[in-house]
Design a protein around this nucleic acid. Structure first.
Lengths: 205, 205
DNA sequence: ACCTCAACTTGACAGTGTAAAGATAGAAGT
DNA sequence: ACTTCTATCTTTACACTGTCAAGTTGAGGT
């Protein structure tokens, strides 16, 4: 009733974010193979060549989507940790559960984030987002110490490998009803956490 | 000088295997993105449509390549285990080192084997090869037991998650010179293995 | 009002996967 | 030895995709 917007303007106004949103939506509904530059452009309402002004090709868009992914990923872990009971061990369990929940809720995005087309080094925003996610893990592992004189990063990588490995195998394994993952839940893995992070015996926390 | 073979015969004779060989070669030299059906066909010396008789499209070829990959993967672990010192713990360490060595030697093949285009369930040969590789892990974990009354699969998945996670993160992380993986070697992870598989304290093997 | 440049659109090309139709060679049957 | 059938290709075509170049348009600055 009021003045109508004329035909679609040449200037989208926020195309970069719209393309990223479109990409995440395509991943969520169609999986990794559904993500194409032309489909993102179509979803955002522009021509197939419009993204080229905002991204260095499909790999540039993938990097931007991964950056958004790492931000949401960190949020999952932080939100989970905020709800944890007040012990170091519970906080660690909480962020690992957050890790797994993210992969359950966003399997294709997670796969893209750690996929073969990702190059973290030249993309500062991606590197920053990935480092922030890692920092959540690092600071939650900090209270624990396998070896007080050792490299704290060892414990971090140990825990990260365990969790990431489980998540990755689960994503792959879910297509095999009789696969080895079928009856081992992540809580079974978490039950082992005290031994792994040096919380058994005389070092409870 | 003796009788020459005439022009290239219409029947390749062993095209299926030749296409798989070509695919593995392309992966090895050019990475995951270098693998295409047409390049495999060209390498095998046939037209682009010839593979269609042997595989259900590119995904069919990927499945066959993954099957070959799992066979080589098992060989890596078995060869490593055969050379291990004569203790259960050494044998387990050996197959995990074999696991990692395979990913170092064949990063793109490993990525394809556990990638998003793999569907184990409908492909019996792939399922068999993957199960065989898993069986190597399972039988090498068998001597250990976190909980004698518990599910032995828990320990298997724990060890597999840890190793696979480390390998996967290393493959991704290797593009980041300052990444968190930079100074944690797999031997650092293996040092923790006794705690993880219940070999610390009064249960040495 | 004019100029500059960012932000697009249009068109084209190369590479890719897949499908259909046709050709050929080898195997099997007579 | 000949015929028939089928497996194993080749050729052609189409749709989709990424990328590039040229052109157009709108916003911002002077």
């Amino acid at each position: 009733m009021t003045s109508k917007k004329p035909e679609k303007p040449r200037h989208h106004g926020n195309l970069r974010e719209a393309l990223i949103d479109a990409g995440i939506d395509l991943l969520q509904h169609g999986g990794l193979s559904a993500l194409t530059l032309r489909k993102c452009a179509a979803k955002a309402g522009v021509s197939h060549a419009a993204p080229a002004h905002h991204f260095s090709g499909l790999d540039g868009l993938i990097g931007a989507i991964a950056t958004r992914g790492f931000t949401q990923f960190s949020d999952y872990m932080l939100t989970s940790r905020a709800k944890a009971a007040d012990s170091d061990a519970d906080r660690l369990r909480a962020i690992l559960n957050g890790y797994i929940e993210f992969t359950v809720d966003h399997p294709a995005l997670f796969t893209l984030m750690f996929g073969s087309r990702i190059e973290i080094d030249p993309d500062q925003q991606l590197a920053q987002a990935a480092a922030t996610a890692y920092q959540v893990l690092a600071e939650t592992c900090a209270p624990f110490s396998i070896d007080p004189d050792g490299n704290p990063r060892e414990l971090e990588i140990l825990v990260w490998s365990l969790c990431h490995g489980y998540a990755s195998l689960r994503l792959v394994g879910q297509v095999t009803p009789d696969g080895p993952m079928n009856d081992v839940g992540f809580s079974d893995i978490l039950r082992r956490l005290p031994d792994i992070v040096g919380l058994s015996g005389d070092n409870p926390k």
